[in-house]
C-alpha cells in the first residue's frame, strides 16, 4: 500500500507504476489546510483520468471534526474508490457516522449502498483499545490499519525503529482484525534510506500476522512486496505438507507426520494459505510434484 500525497500531480500521475497492490491517495496529513480544496479536486480528477488499473484505490479523508469530512466524502464516493480511510478513529460510533455519510453520497450518485468500503486508520490509544469494536462496527469495514506515528505521540512513547513501543498495539490490532474477520495493515517504515531496517520491519509485520504493510516511498514497494511473498523454502514445505496429507488419505491414515512432526489442521491451513498467496503472485504454488 503506497501513500501518495493528494496535492502532487506528478506523483499521482505515476502512482500505479511502482508495483504497489493498493494506493492510498492522501487528503489528510500530506495536504496543508490551505490546499485541501485543491487536493480534493486533483484526487477526483486523477481517479477519473488515470484509471489506476491493477491497484486497489483507497482515499484517506480528513477526520470528523476537521470540517472537511463531509466535502471529502461527497466529492470522492461517486468515483467509487475501493475504500475510504477515515483517520484518528477511536470508537465504533465514528465509523457508523462516516458510513451514514457515505450511504448518503452513494444514494445521491446512484450507487448501491455499501459500494465503497472502509479502512479505518487506528492511531490513538482509545482506538487501539477498541480495535475489535471498530473492526466489527459496520459491514463496510474490510480491514483496519495501524498508524504508529500519531499513536506513539498519544502514548507519550518514543518512536523507535525496532518498535517495542508499538508491540502491544500491533498484537492487539492483529487480534482484533482476525476476530472480526477483516484484514489488517501495518504502519509504514518512515526512514526512506534505511533499506535493511525496512526489510526487518516488514518481515516482523508479516510474522505477526499483518495482511500487508503501507509504504511512504515508491522505493519501498519492492522490499515490502518481497517480505510478504512466501520464500522458496516456505512454498516447498507447504507442498510437502499437502503431499503428505494426500499420501495419508490414500493410505487411509488418520494421523500424518512429516519430518517426525504431526501435521494437524492449523499446519494444513497455513500451508494452504502459503500456496494460495504463491499462486496469486505467480510463483507456481498450485503445482504438486
Amino acid at each position: 500500500m503506497l501513500f501518495v500525497p493528494g496535492n502532487n500531480p506528478g506523483m499521482l500521475l505515476n502512482a500505479d507504476v511502482y508495483g504497489a497492490d493498493a494506493l492510498i491517495l492522501d487528503l489528510e496529513d500530506a495536504v496543508a489546510p490551505a490546499e485541501k480544496d485543491a487536493a480534493r479536486v486533483l484526487v477526483r480528477n486523477a481517479l477519473s483520468a488515470c484509471g489506476y488499473q491493477g491497484c486497489e484505490i483507497i482515499v484517506r479523508i480528513n477526520p470528523l471534526g476537521s470540517g472537511y469530512t463531509g466535502e471529502d466524502i461527497s466529492a470522492i464516493v461517486p468515483l467509487r474508490p475501493d475504500m475510504l480511510m477515515p483517520t484518528k478513529v477511536s470508537d465504533a460510533g465514528a465509523i457508523r457516522e462516516v458510513s451514514r455519510m457515505m450511504a448518503e453520497a452513494e444514494r445521491e450518485s446512484g450507487l448501491a449502498e455499501g459500494t465503497v468500503g472502509l479502512l479505518p486508520l487506528i492511531e490513538t490509544a482509545a482506538g487501539v483499545e477498541r480495535a475489535y469494536e471498530i473492526a466489527a462496527a459496520d459491514p463496510r469495514v474490510k480491514a483496519i490499519f495501524l498508524g504508529a506515528e500519531d499513536l506513539s505521540s498519544d502514548l507519550q512513547a518514543i518512536r523507535s525503529k525496532p518498535g517495542g513501543e508499538i508491540a502491544y498495539a500491533r498484537g492487539r490490532m492483529v487480534m482484533a482484525a482476525r476476530a472480526a474477520g477483516v484484514d489488517v495493515y501495518d504502519t509504514p517504515f518512515t526512514d526512506v534510506n534505511d533499506e535493511e531496517g525496512l526489510r526487518q520491519d516488514a518481515e516482523l509485520a508479516r510474522a505477526l500476522g499483518f495482511t500487508g504493510k503501507a509504504v511512504i516511498s515508491p522505493r519501498h514497494v519492492e522490499a515490502v512486496n518481497q517480505a510478504f511473498t512466501p520464500g522458496e523454502g516456505e512454498i516447498r514445505y507447504a507442498r510437502e505438507v499437502m503431499d503428505a496429507i494426500e499420501e495419508g488419505k490414500r493410505l487411509g491414515r488418520g494421523a500424518v507426520s512429516l519430518r517426525g512432526k504431526m501435521i494437524d489442521k492449523p499446519i494444513v491451513d497455513r500451508a494452504l494459505r502459503v500456496l494460495e498467496t504463491a499462486r496469486a503472485l505467480g510463483l507456481g504454488g498450485a503445482e504438486h510434484e
Binding site: 505515476n14 507504476v17 508495483g19 516511498s217 515508491p218 522505493r219
Partner: peptide
C-alpha cells in the same frame, strides 16, 4: 537514479 519512475 533515485527517481522511482526511472527505477520502474
Amino acid at each position: 537514479t533515485r527517481d522511482p519512475v526511472g527505477l520502474a
